[in-house]
Every structure is written in structure tokens, then in C-alpha cells.
């Protein structure tokens, strides 16, 4: 039983947490792809930027003497989301819209978004250096521990408060997004544009408005994911640059343009990472007397240092075996 809890704490919880972050990022990538038809490489840096916006607001609030029993980041999150959404709109207006107006190929926009990635990253490093920042300098991170009232169980189930918040927020966002896309006028318009942009235009749907809404949602989700990631680990200028490829992997595995696919892909990649570096030998421990002694003590599928490559391998295999992703087709 202790082994099962160890598995829960070291494989299931991290998989759920990182999967939530990947899912939030991948939804943004997939929405942008569905509407604007390009792979937005700067999304990871939009997340980092969101994290830093939250951080600045949090220390600003702490500076004017606001103190709370919970991390102040939760309080300022809506403001940070709004700021990041506006920034995403501004980036589109300045860098992508002029290229779209010229009718360039999607991959040109991909290259442009790499330029944007570098600009955001350069600016963040310019102002924040390369060090790490922590939301929990004032208030320590709350760790929940649940002890099961079972004989012989010594190990508690443990997770942190931000992890709980993150998973709950992700679930809430997914539900909200579902209702937005299937019930609201503009949500349906977004699906229409993703399905057939030309027809949407001749139906009288204002494409510029849809593009704006897309950036607001994608930017807001990026801020949410970036802040959550920063709350779970720490805030670094290259925070999201390292997870942009897993996020792309999640979006592609889920079928680019498919919102639900992106969410499923996010959790799939998240769990694939955490399960493949988990030492499965732990689960065999109760039977250790029956096991042959040639069995190695570490039965992780890949060594921990290759954790990041798991996502890339899944990405490459998906692209080769089933490039349309699990949920076929490119539409919202």
C-alpha cells in the first residue's frame, strides 16, 4: 500500500499537474492554429510573460502592504490574465497581422513567431536577469498530506495547494471553454472560422473580431498556465521555452485544431513523461522475495535525464504514424 501511495505521489500527481499545464498551453496553440493556421512558437514565452506579469503584480501588491493567508498570486491572476491578453493582441497587431495581410505562407508566420519568442525572451532576461524567482518568499507553500487510516500505511498522500488549485482551475477552464464554443455566438463563430474561414466571412462573421477573441483566450490561458507553472516550481526566464515542444507535442497528438484533443494530448504527454521516468521496481517491492535477483533495481522506462525527450519521441512518432493526431481533422 505504501508503494501505491508512492506511485500516486511520484507519478500520478506530477503527471496530472504538468498535464494540466500542457493542456492549457496546447489549447491556446490549437485555437491559434484553427483560426490563423500557423504554429505559434512564441506561445511558451507568452506563458513566461504571464508568469512574470503575475509576479510583478504580486510583489507590487505586497509592496503596498496587502497580505493574505493564501498566495497573493491567486488574487491578482485575473488582472494578470487581462494584461497578458492585451499583450497577445498587441503582438498580433504589430508582428503577425501585417504578414497575414500580405498573404504569406503559414510557415513564414511560424518564423515570425520565433522572432517574437526571442524578443520576449530577450526583454524578460533584460529586466529579470537569468535568476529564478519565487512566489513563496512571504507565505510558504501549503502542503496537504492525507494519511490513510489503514494498518501498516506509513506514507501520506501529499500534494501542494497550488497543485490542487491548478488542477481545479484547468477543469473549470475546460468546462467554460466547452460552453463558450458550443453555446455562445462568438464561440460558434470561432468554430465556423476554423471550419471554413471563407464561408464564415461571407456569412457576415467579422474575422478580425474572431481573431481578437482567439488571441484574448490564448493569451489568457497562457498567463494562467505560466503563473500556475511558476507557482508549482519557480519562475525563470526560460521557464516555458523548455516546455513549448511538449506543448506542441500535446497539440499535435491531440489533432491540431481540436480543443478537446489538445486537452487529452496535454494529459497524455504529461502522464507519459511522469510514468516513463517512474521507477516501476518500486511497485514490485512487496514481492521482492519471490523475484529473481538478476532484476535491476531501477525499472524506469527511460532514465530521468531523458524525461524531456519522451515528449519529443511521442511528437515525432505521432507525426510519422498519424500526423492528424488522435482526434482526426483540423477544426475546433
Amino acid at each position: 500500500m505504501n508503494e501505491a501511495i508512492f506511485f500516486l505521489n511520484n507519478a500520478v500527481v506530477p503527471g496530472l499537474v504538468i498535464g494540466s499545464i500542457y493542456a492549457l498551453g496546447a489549447v491556446g496553440i490549437t485555437l491559434i492554429y484553427g483560426i490563423l493556421r500557423f504554429a505559434h512558437f512564441a506561445h511558451g514565452d507568452l506563458m513566461t510573460m504571464g508568469g512574470f506579469v503575475s509576479y510583478l503584480l504580486a510583489i507590487g501588491l505586497a509592496g503596498i502592504g496587502v497580505s493574505t493567508t493564501f498566495p497573493v498570486a491567486y488574487l491578482i491572476l485575473p488582472v494578470a490574465i487581462a494584461i497578458t491578453a492585451v499583450a497577445a493582441l498587441a503582438i498580433d497587431r504589430m508582428f503577425y497581422a501585417p504578414l497575414r495581410a500580405r498573404g504569406v505562407k503559414p510557415v513564414t508566420l511560424l518564423v515570425a513567431s520565433i522572432g517574437v519568442t526571442m524578443m520576449i525572451q530577450g526583454l524578460i532576461r533584460l529586466f529579470f536577469g537569468t535568476g529564478t524567482y519565487n512566489f513563496f518568499e512571504a507565505t510558504p507553500k501549503v502542503i496537504h498530506q492525507i494519511r490513510l487510516p489503514i494498518e501498516g500505511v506509513t506514507r501520506p498522500i501529499s500534494f501542494t495547494q497550488p497543485q490542487v488549485v491548478m488542477v481545479l482551475v484547468t477543469v473549470a477552464v475546460v468546462i467554460a471553454l466547452h460552453f463558450f464554443l458550443t453555446r455562445s455566438r462568438f464561440g460558434k463563430a470561432m468554430r465556423a472560422v476554423s471550419d471554413n474561414a471563407d464561408l464564415a466571412q461571407v456569412s457576415g462573421i467579422n474575422l478580425r473580431m474572431v481573431v481578437r477573441i482567439t488571441w484574448i483566450i490564448a493569451g489568457g490561458l497562457a498567463c494562467l498556465a505560466g503563473t500556475m507553472l511558476a507557482l508549482d516550481v519557480t519562475l525563470k526566464p526560460d521557464l516555458a521555452f523548455n516546455i513549448i515542444l511538449p506543448i506542441f507535442a500535446a497539440a499535435i497528438v491531440g489533432g491540431v485544431g481540436q480543443v478537446y484533443g489538445a486537452i487529452a494530448g496535454g494529459y497524455l504527454i504529461g502522464f507519459a513523461e511522469s510514468l516513463s521516468v517512474f521507477n516501476w521496481a518500486v511497485l514490485l517491492r512487496p514481492f521482492r522475495d519471490q523475484l529473481p535477483d538478476w532484476l535491476p533495481t531501477n525499472l524506469a522506462i527511460v532514465p530521468t535525464e531523458y524525461k524531456l525527450t519522451v515528449a519529443f519521441v511521442i511528437l515525432v512518432i505521432t507525426l510519422l504514424v498519424r500526423p492528424t493526431g488522435i482526434f482526426r481533422g483540423a477544426s475546433l
Binding site: L99, M118, M119, G122, R125
Partner: peptide, 15 residues
Amino acid sequence: QMRVFVLGLVIVLAL
């Protein structure tokens, strides 16, 4: 760090 920003700016301006 400025050079990262400069390079990004060069990309978008060139495009």
C-alpha cells in the same frame, strides 16, 4: 541578453 532581443527584432523586420 540584448542580443537575443536584437536578433528577434531582426527576424520580424526582415520578414
